[in-house]
Design a protein around this nucleic acid. Structure first.
Length: 268
DNA sequence: TACCAGGCAACTT
DNA sequence: AAGTTGCATGGT
């Protein structure tokens, strides 16, 4: 299918640090999600997706008007305006909560390259084979059931480091119905936050990423080392009132503003 | 070599 | 309640 929209840029989305399963190929990306691997290509005024499944429209958040959002934040201040202009094709993807939670447990005190590698390794070892594209095999992110018997050391072998025990604990929590990842969709933000904070390896920052990337809560504003640096250097905000400032100042789509800032701050 | 990476849990005061 | 420390590991 073809999507005509000025506010979709595959490179920007792929490098925005919210998804770890966008693989560059000649003239496009293979995107692994929704139990499938599809090729996406950038067009002059939109993108093409080699699939007719409407799920990809939801995945790419196509129902939201990013034109209006970029316009809103361009008027906020000069720094944000530059960030928005630099990454105006970023969108907040609607991703699977289980995959997002696993991925962002791995992300703690880690770097994007290593996170990407660990997620790839987990998928190759325990995920379902999907298809081969241009000579490379693609595997889905493993289901909780596929990870049921995986011991702690096996996670370590995938390169997740000391986060191995947190992944093991989370998988067991899902298997044993100590948390219902679909059931909690109906909770409001703060209730959802409380549920996620029960998980080992999930603190405030990781929980905010899960709300934003896994549950579509676009007002959440995760503060990581990059964002902290930006708020200090570009906005002159003090460490101890950073959270309050960001939650108020970047309303009502804090998470989207945060992605513009993250992408701009990390790339330039 | 020391420090950093989309922080967190456990421990100390 | 608030502050401090150790943590796997690959890249600079």
């Amino acid at each position: 299918m073809i999507i005509k929209n000025k506010f979709v840029n595959l490179k920007q989305i792929a490098e925005s640090g919210q998804a770890f399963r966008w693989y560059p190929i000649n003239n496009g990306y293979v995107v692994v999600a929704n139990s499938d691997a599809v090729v996406m290509r950038q067009l002059e005024s939109g993108i093409s997706i080699e699939s007719e499944d409407q799920i990809w429209l939801h995945y790419l958040d196509m129902n939201r008007n990013y034109g209006a959002i970029t316009e809103l934040y361009c008027q906020k201040d000069e720094y944000l305006k530059k960030a928005v202009e630099y990454g105006s094709g970023i969108r907040i993807l609607n991703q699977d909560p289980f995959e997002i939670i696993m991925t962002f447990i791995i992300s703690a005190n880690n770097n994007i390259k290593r996170i990407t590698n660990a997620v790839l390794e987990l998928s190759k070892r325990y995920g379902k084979f999907l298809k081969e594209i241009e000579g490379i095999e693609y595997y889905a992110f493993p289901s909780p059931d596929a990870l049921r018997e995986v011991p702690i050391e096996a996670y370590r072998a995938c390169g997740v480091g000391y986060r191995d025990k947190y992944l093991y604990s989370f998988v067991q929590d899902v298997i044993n119905h100590n948390i219902d990842l679909e059931g909690i969709r109906t909770l409001n933000d703060s209730e959802l936050m409380v549920e996620l904070l029960r998980l080992k390896g999930v603190g405030e920052k990781v929980a905010n990423c899960i709300l934003l990337f896994g549950y579509g809560r676009v007002e959440r504003f995760p503060i990581d080392t990059w964002i902290r640096k930006i708020l200090i250097e570009a906005y002159g905000i003090d460490e101890n009132c950073m959270k309050e400032f960001a939650e108020d100042y970047f309303k009502p789509y804090g998470g989207i503003a945060q992605q513009y800032l993250f992408y701009y701050g990390r790339m330039k």
